[in-house]
Design a protein around this nucleic acid. Structure first.
Lengths: 360, 360
DNA sequence: GCGGTGGGTTTGATCGTTCAAACCCTGCGA
DNA sequence: TCGCAGGGTTTGAACGATCAAACCCACCGC
């Protein structure tokens, strides 16, 4: 392989110094216009690209964000993280950042990996996903002074309000509220909620969207709402069996679901029972939802990715901000999801419209 | 943030030279044991990690592999690439390699991205996926002298046999052959094939697995095989409708499918028609297959990832091999997939066993 | 006693860039 | 005329590692 041109080659060819070439690239406004043009021409002609490692070595910025590739493909909803990953990569590129993947076998290993990435000056920041209660990564990252943002709220953690922990999350409450209102708007009254066992922060938050929508329209007690709720584990067959039992009771005329997995189970039960026109709405807008025509609440991963970068680098910046540069107001953000309406929530069978954030 | 220790700090502390520290890390066998131990102790004590960019600058290796994050989440099978990505990252780490993501809006943009990555000396090699007929990336990469491996055969391309183009692919033929034999072994004779429209290289290859298995057992003409074949586009509802029409004809007693998407459609039709005990087998072993109990042919992404790295770096190497270091024999590999049996292909309803490559 | 050998270690140069400071020039006011 | 400001450019050093060659020294054979 032929040697690539260096900044030195460009400088010589353009009859300027190395530093001037560097300035053309990094601070074009301090270079006289004529010089700038000339240097740019040479850069194009030689096909020069700065050597990333040399730049990183000198500037001490890696312009790289690390994210863990999670092994857990939790049911059918795992693909959200993949969509997020894609969008994060695209958005990061717009800001001159790269995304580096890593994997870990367990939490301890993950911390070791993070330490190595930091010490090797390989990454400027980390994006963490799937946070959980008492997540050890968070104090570690704060302590290590490593900038990070989490996709997921720190439910009930001490750092929830602190700018030390920047986070972005999906407003599950708002999403389910929308979905429920959508069904109410179609004239349905007896809308059930198919959720996870109580106690899951995310699940409870989503259910609150449903209870709020139901209460604002109908006069229901907590007890009545509880009767309209079915709770199952996150699994397709489990949900299917639960709904098979529920349908003959004729208690509800539609179901808002906490996830696409359980919604898929519900749909299968509904189909099998021959109850066409019984609306079901899922949550996550996974490819499966798209494939089977299931209405679902879309997480808008692109919006989340863009927001994560805003939190890390500021609205405009091209550099990762350290924790002490972040103010409380700019450290947390909820992204409102968007209901995608498909056949499963129409009373009449209608194909969805062509343009649809759910994919192609 | 406090400054990290450099190789210089370690050297001073251990009373040796920089180079000796470097040797302890990169060529431990040439250092006297006593010295090695002493240096290792100091490294541990100071928590030293080599500065990745400095190393890359000097050594001209980036130890990084780039892969494009594909925007196309083609139906429900998009998740295979994600599993591959995860496995590739894990396997690469074992060999001291990192995986860097990038995205592109179109083929031209992808080439531009690749060029920038190469010129910036950011990556040593590229993994490309979703290759297609006449893929412009392949000649470009060969021409640019950039080492690469593709996940996917170059169907009918000139480079198919050349060591210039290293590739690994799933042996769809063998997978479908297995699946069909599995059904034959269960005593089923009239096994249909649900495929894609003729002309797709991957689809035709998979169908050949079915025809071979059927021929070796039963005496069937091409025409008869054609009658047992149903062809649909890659979509759940399309497959469902096709199978809805097929079932009443009572021509077939089971279906082997070209993908999980169409298999899912088939399953839905079967369920709706109340034909319990009508086996369906998919291909890809997506999370959805796992979730709904669909037997499926698993692509073994981990095996593929490991093989891709073998092709790039040699069986043992810790360095990417350039194209001219590769011999013809070591440039291509087919990975045999593995049938995962679930409820959908049992005549009696039986849950699958606990340990299952399909996830958790 | 002297040259040769080879394992183990050190030394100086180098990778390609940016930082910090110096430099050069022109214009302007005192 | 001189000093000074300041835009534009150049120069030398530094970032932290590895490469290539030199070095040291104990040992061996003749």
């Amino acid at each position: 392989m032929a040697r690539f041109p260096t900044i030195e080659d460009v400088a010589r060819e353009a009859s300027v110094s190395r530093q001037t070439v560097s300035n053309v690239l990094n601070a074009p406004d301090i270079v006289r216009e004529e010089t700038r043009e000339r240097v740019r021409d040479v850069i194009d002609r030689l096909g020069y690209h700065p050597h990333a490692s040399a730049r990183r070595l000198r500037s001490q910025y890696s312009s790289t964000i690390a994210i863990r590739m999670d092994p857990i493909t939790n049911g059918i909803s795992g693909s959200i993280l993949d969509r997020f990953l894609h969008d994060l990569t695209a958005r990061a590129a717009e800001r001159g950042m790269r995304v580096l993947l890593f994997t870990a076998t367990d939490p301890a290993d993950e911390l070791a990996q993070l330490r190595a990435l930091r010490d090797g000056a390989d990454v400027d920041a980390v994006v963490i996903t799937s946070t959980y209660y008492g997540d050890p990564r968070i104090p570690w990252l704060i302590d290590a002074g490593m900038p990070f943002v989490s996709f997921g709220r720190p439910w009930g953690e001490e750092h929830a309000e602190s700018p030390d922990h920047r986070w972005v999350d999906v407003d599950g409450f708002a999403g389910v509220l929308d979905a429920t209102r959508h069904l109410i708007g179609r004239g349905i009254r007896r809308i059930g909620f198919l959720g996870w066992p109580a106690g899951s922060a995310t699940g409870d938050d989503r259910r609150r969207g449903w209870t709020t929508a139901m209460r604002e329209q109908f006069d229901l007690t907590d007890h009545e709402l509880e009767l309209l709720t079915v709770r199952v584990e996150e699994s397709v067959p489990g949900a299917r069996m639960a709904v098979e039992k529920l349908l003959p009771l004729r208690l509800v005329d539609a179901l808002v679901c906490v996830s696409d997995s359980v919604a898929l189970g519900a749909m299968m039960a509904v189909t099998e029972a021959g109850r066409r026109g019984f609306p079901v709405i899922g949550f996550d807008n996974t490819p499966v939802a798209k494939a089977v025509g299931l209405s679902s609440v879309d997480q808008r991963t692109d919006e989340i990715a863009a927001t994560a970068l805003d939190l890390l680098m500021g609205e405009q910046g091209h550099r990762v901000l350290t924790a002490d540069e972040v103010t409380e107001r700019s450290a947390h953000r909820l992204v409102a999801p968007k209901l995608i309406v498909r056949r499963s929530s129409h009373l009449t069978v209608v194909e969805e419209a062509g343009s649809d954030p759910g994919g192609n």
